[in-house]
Simulated assay, not measured.
Amino acid sequence: MIHRLYEKLLEMRISKANLPGCIAIVLSSGDLFDEGLDKLRDIIEWSRSMGLASLVLYINDNEPTLCQKIADTLRSSPAQISLHTADADLLTGSGGRMRVTVSLGYGGKREVTEAFRDLLSEVEEGRLIPEDIDEKAIESRLRFSQKPDLVIRAGGKQLSDFMIWQSAYSELYFTDVNWLRLRKIDFLRAIRDYQGRERRFGR
C-alpha cells in the first residue's frame, strides 16, 4: 500500500513538460532469459503511460534465437518496435505513437566504424569529397538516429559502448537494481532525478 502511494506521489511530481525526449536503457548479458522478457513489456507500458516519445534498449547479447523471442513477446505491445542485430532488422509491436528500438549486440564502436567505411567508400567512388565530411555527414550514416536525453544503466556501474556518438551529451543514471527486479518506482526515480539536473550539453 505504502509502495503504491509513493509511486503515485513520484508520478505526480514528474513534470510532463520536461520529460526526456528519448530514454536509453543498457542491460547486461543474460538479462532477457526467462521472466526478463516479460520486463520488456513492463518498461514499454511504463514509458507509454508517462507519455515518452522514444525508448531505446540495448542488450549486449546476440544469441541467435533471442531476436525472435523478443519479437514474439512484444507483438501486441502498443508501440512501433524495431529490433536490430548486426545482420538484420525486424519490426514488431501493434503500432502507436511511441517508438521503441531494441539493439542486440550491435555496439557503438561497430556502428561508428561502419559509418566511416561508408564515407570512405563514397570518397573513393567520387561521390563525396573529404572536405564535406562533418558531424552531420557522420550522423546521417549511423544506424540509430536517436540522441538519448537520459541513459539508464540497470544493475551495474559500467556503460557499454552502445550509441557512443549519440549519447555524448546524455545524462547518465546508474541503479544497483538489476533488470529482473526493476520496478516502475525505480524507473520514475530515474526520470525525477533527470528533471532535477541542469543539462550543460558538454559546456
Rank of each mutant, 00 (worst) to 15 (best):
G196C: 05
S54E: 15
S140G: 13
Q68T: 10
Y173I: 02
D161N: 14
A154W: 00
P78I: 01
L55N: 03
E124K: 14
E135H: 07
T113H: 11
L159H: 13
S170Y: 01
V123I: 15
H84L: 10
L74Y: 01
A168C: 10
T92N: 09
Y194N: 05
E139V: 07
K109A: 11
T101Q: 15
A154R: 01
D89Q: 14
V177K: 11
V177I: 12
A79M: 04
K157G: 12
R141Q: 08
R199G: 12
K184Q: 14
K136A: 15
D72H: 07
S103T: 02
S121P: 06
G93T: 02
G202S: 05
L104M: 11
I129E: 14
L172G: 06
S160R: 01
V123L: 09
W165V: 06
L180K: 11
R199L: 08
E114K: 04
K69H: 04
D161G: 13
R192L: 12
M98K: 00
D134I: 01
E122A: 15
Q146W: 02
A137K: 06
T92M: 03
A115Q: 05
R110G: 07
P148E: 05
G155T: 06
L172R: 09
V123W: 02
D149N: 13
G126M: 03
R143F: 06
S145N: 09
L91E: 15
L119K: 04
I138N: 07
L90K: 14
P64H: 05
R110Y: 02
A71Y: 03
I133V: 15
R143V: 08
Y106H: 10
A79Q: 06
W165T: 02
T92E: 07
G126I: 02
S103M: 10
H84K: 12
L150F: 00
R200W: 05
E139R: 07
E114F: 02
I70F: 01
T175E: 04
D176T: 13
P78G: 02
S170H: 00
D87C: 09
L180E: 11
A168S: 12
T113R: 11
Q195E: 04
I129A: 12
R197E: 06
R99S: 10
R199H: 10
L188P: 09
Y173S: 13
R153N: 10
F174S: 08
S94M: 11
R181Q: 11
L66I: 06
